[in-house]
Design a protein around this nucleic acid. Structure first.
Lengths: 181, 181
DNA sequence: GCGTCCATGTAAATGGTTACATGATTAT
DNA sequence: ATAATCATGTAACCATTTACATGGACGC
């Protein structure tokens, strides 16, 4: 998803500043499937402003820098909904870890184990974070409930798979000695 | 993973041409987690050649254009193995579909159902393809076995989740009428 | 005839991230 | 003191993908 659509999507759920949009996609339960950096949010927001899809309101805050709060216009909402009509591109699951683990059987056993431990910990951390987030606000609309539970299901599947199948990699001491690739 | 590492990785499993490397990552059981296009493979291969990490051999074929088959050098293997040492970046699961479905409860019911049907079909197709690929050659080294079974586990988790939870989105006819976002 | 697979390569276009630039406040 | 959080914005940099360029063989 391009930065403009991502910004518009966040604003559909409520007014926000660029900084807040970044937080929304970085921390929240949607971080599993989407990402945007500030370097693309700010230009996107200005482009949306030029196109009349959002309006701004500069909000002074004490003890903090002023922030620019953006609001979607009616036109912006229409454009967003129309953008949802096209057929979505295929999901992309990219993993450096799995590239490395594809050669796991020729890695030093200690490294292999460290890698698997770290991988499991990382997913367990993400699962716990998402679960906490779901517990914190259980009453979100169906769409978002579907997506965040989806995330939980994927995290769980990964954790279960790795825990149950890491032996495939760790039981190959003999093979490693034979220098098989 | 950058194109050069991806090429080197494919060549670690056997000599190949650029075209064949693309096929390896596009069709095979590794397509779930990695991707490279020809536009980045050919320049990558030439860079590896310049660095002495691979060698080429032009192979004439009858009825077909000649192909350049690349082979990893000892230095190439060493560089590749060293490249595996760094700590891998986090997994990235990006999904336009889930972005759209996050607004699924305000989509026209017919569109919503079509989207979910298509999504399920797509994952079922990928699962079947991967399963067939696994059946076709069951005896791969542990590393690759771990990765491709990982893919299968993820596909299965997605299919199960969507089948069992699509009702979350499809049961909101009432809400849609109330124009809730 | 038309599309697809084989096969390589370059260049333009794309779209992002990272780093830079600035600066106040608060927590450790 | 030092780092982190809040807050915006620009520009350099990076790596891709897409399209272009070329061309024979094979199936429909």
């Amino acid at each position: 998803m391009d930065a403009k659509t991502l910004c518009l999507g966040a604003l559909m759920l409520g007014d926000a500043s660029g900084y807040e949009i970044r937080k929304f996609y970085e921390d929240g339960p949607y971080s599993a499937f989407h990402a945007v950096s500030l370097g693309s949010i700010y230009p996107a927001l200005n482009a949306l402003l030029t196109d009349g899809l959002v309006t701004v309101c500069e909000m002074a805050q004490d003890g903090r820098p002023a922030k620019k709060v953006y609001t979607v216009t009616e036109q912006g909402k229409a454009v967003f909904m129309r953008g949802l009509e096209g057929s979505p591109g295929a999901d992309r699951f990219r993993s450096d870890m799995l590239f490395i683990l594809a050669f796991g059987h020729v890695l030093p056993p200690a490294r292999r184990t460290a890698l698997l431990d770290g991988y499991l910990e990382e997913y367990q951390r993400m699962r716990a974070e998402l679960a906490a987030c779901i517990d914190a606000n259980p009453d979100v609309p169906a769409g978002r409930r579907f997506v965040r539970d989806f995330g939980l299901a994927v995290y769980e599947a990964v954790i279960t798979y790795v825990a149950e199948n890491r032996h495939i990699l760790e039981d190959v001491v003999d093979d490693a000695v034979k220098e098989k690739v």
